[in-house]
Amino acid sequence: MQRVNMIMAESPGLITICLLGYLLSAECTVFLDHENANKILNRPKRYNSGKLEEFVQGNLERECMEEKCSFEEAREVFENTERTTEFWKQYVDGDQCESNPCLNGGSCKDDINSYECWCPFGFEGKNCELDVTCNIKNGRCEQFCKNSADNKVVCSCTEGYRLAENQKSCEPAVPFPCGRVSVSQTSKLTRAETVFPDVDYVNSTEAETILDNITQSTQSFNDFTRVVGGEDAKPGQFPWQVVLNGKVDAFCGGSIVNEKWIVTAAHCVETGVKITVVAGEHNIEETEHTEQKRNVIRIIPHHNYNAAINKYNHDIALLELDEPLVLNSYVTPICIADKEYTNIFLKFGSGYVSGWGRVFHKGRSALVLQYLRVPLVDRATCLRSTKFTIYNNMFCAGFHEGGRDSCQGDSGGPHVTEVEGTSFLTGIISWGEECAMKGKYGIYTKVSRYVNWIKEKTKLT
């Protein structure tokens, strides 16, 4: 034993070699072989497995989906700052455009905790909710729209109204504003409101030439003092309507412009014939205590009207009353817009006519005020429907199939267009061939041609 100890002390290297040989010859039971080890760690190889990531292109799944990435790591994937920024906006807080917040056709661009709407022409605001041009839906104005110097929408209202708090709607500024039905039992019968379409306001006024200088022999019209197929109006439903009495009662109609003036057809009036105007009328054979009678003290036909040349060209006249009318729910003026808007309103496509005229061709006159909704007829169809001249200051309205029309005794009465609950004068009943005849239409004086003249002559002093 002493000898062994001496050998170990003198030859430590020998001992180490012996131990190493023993270990190498022993069977290893701690580690699995290569094949079995792979069965336990069965993990798919990654895209760049075996390579240094710093030297390969980034992978979106590896960089940002398996674990949260930084902007720089995302930049490695896209290799483009702009594309990385677009991805980053949604990656950080989701897609803010998912709810489609942009209105009126706006395009949404996502941002971090926010979004941006790219608005089409005519709109602005956070969600493109603000109209900035009158060309689109009248700028959301209830009545009139004008573009300011910086191309912003400025709404306005006709006389007797003021802008509401929203700067879009119009509200009454006087007790009985024009064009409004205020009798409670008839307010439910107000005709369907007309909503502004998209309009090209630059070209809204037709490029028409008034044929002022045409000389033409007097034409022989049949029954051209021209509501057939209409309905009984309720008291106060058309408070701007008046009836004219002269040699015979209810020979023509008219509309209240203001307390002192009536507008009617020029062919209705004769110099030297006494005319009485009755406002607030409903049943011409009954006294309903809503009527107001006034005498006409002055007749002003349009300066281009000449019955000797043509009885229905420039067929418009103004009547001055001896005493002002007292405005109330049964006696209310009709609204008159400017030339541009009167023309736009007419193009809405349908209007209402009213009167006490004959209820059928050569038949009896109506006792109760009649009204009828009539569609506008395109000019080409209008011209083809008659052998008589249709001037540019006239328009056609009615039904091709016949059966409904204005008729004798309705002449001078109103053709009105309702705009968001307020009625505007767009025409004056003038003439036609018979009444409600198939293929024939009622012919009306186009008020847009005469609004400046009306307003100039009827100013209240």
Rank of each mutant, 00 (worst) to 15 (best):
Q2A: 10
R3E: 04
N5F: 14
N5C: 12
I7S: 05
L14N: 01
T16D: 02
C18A: 07
L20G: 01
L32G: 15
L32F: 06
A37L: 10
N42L: 05
K45H: 11
R46P: 12
K51Q: 15
E54A: 08
Q57V: 10
L60Q: 15
R62P: 14
R62F: 11
K68R: 12
C69A: 08
F71E: 15
F71H: 04
E72R: 15
E73V: 14
E76S: 15
E76I: 15
F78M: 13
R83T: 11
E86W: 10
Q96T: 05
K109V: 08
D110Q: 14
W118A: 12
F123P: 07
E124W: 06
G125I: 02
N127S: 09
E129P: 05
L130N: 11
C134I: 02
I136K: 12
N138G: 07
R140M: 05
E142Y: 03
F144L: 04
S148A: 09
S148R: 04
S148L: 12
S148H: 10
D150R: 06
N151E: 09
V153M: 11
S156R: 06
S156I: 04
T158N: 05
Y161M: 03
A164E: 05
E165W: 11
E165K: 11
E165S: 05
Q167D: 10
K168Q: 12
S169Q: 07
C170I: 01
P172G: 05
V174P: 01
G179V: 01
G179K: 00
S182Q: 06
S182R: 06
S182W: 07
S182D: 05
Q185G: 11
T186I: 10
K188Y: 11
R191V: 08
E193W: 12
T194W: 12
V195K: 03
F196P: 10
F196C: 15
P197N: 04
D198Y: 10
I210K: 05
T215R: 07
Q216I: 03
T218R: 03
S220D: 11
T225I: 07
R226W: 04
V228W: 08
V228L: 04
K234Q: 04
P239W: 01
V242Q: 00
V242R: 00
K247N: 10
V248E: 11
D249T: 12
A250M: 07
F251T: 07
G254L: 01
E259D: 07
W261K: 00
A265T: 03
V269Y: 03
V269E: 01
E270Y: 05
V277I: 07
V277G: 00
G280Q: 02
E281L: 12
H282A: 11
N283C: 04
T287G: 12
E288R: 09
H289Q: 04
T290A: 07
N295R: 10
V296K: 00
A308L: 09
I309T: 06
I309W: 06
N310E: 13
N310H: 12
I316Q: 01
L318S: 00
L318F: 01
L319V: 13
L319I: 10
L321S: 01
L321D: 01
L327M: 14
L327H: 03
L327K: 03
S329W: 06
T332A: 10
D338Y: 03
K339Q: 14
K339W: 08
E340K: 03
S354C: 10
L369I: 13
L369S: 15
L372C: 14
R373Y: 11
L376N: 07
T381P: 09
K387Y: 09
M394C: 05
F395Y: 04
G398T: 05
F399I: 15
R404Y: 15
C407H: 06
G409I: 09
D410W: 15
P414I: 14
P414R: 02
V419D: 02
L425E: 00
T426M: 00
I428K: 00
I429F: 13
C435T: 06
C435Q: 04
C435D: 05
A436Q: 15
M437H: 08
K438P: 11
G442W: 04
G442K: 06
I443M: 08
K446Q: 13
V447M: 12
N452Y: 11
N452T: 11
I454G: 01
K459D: 13
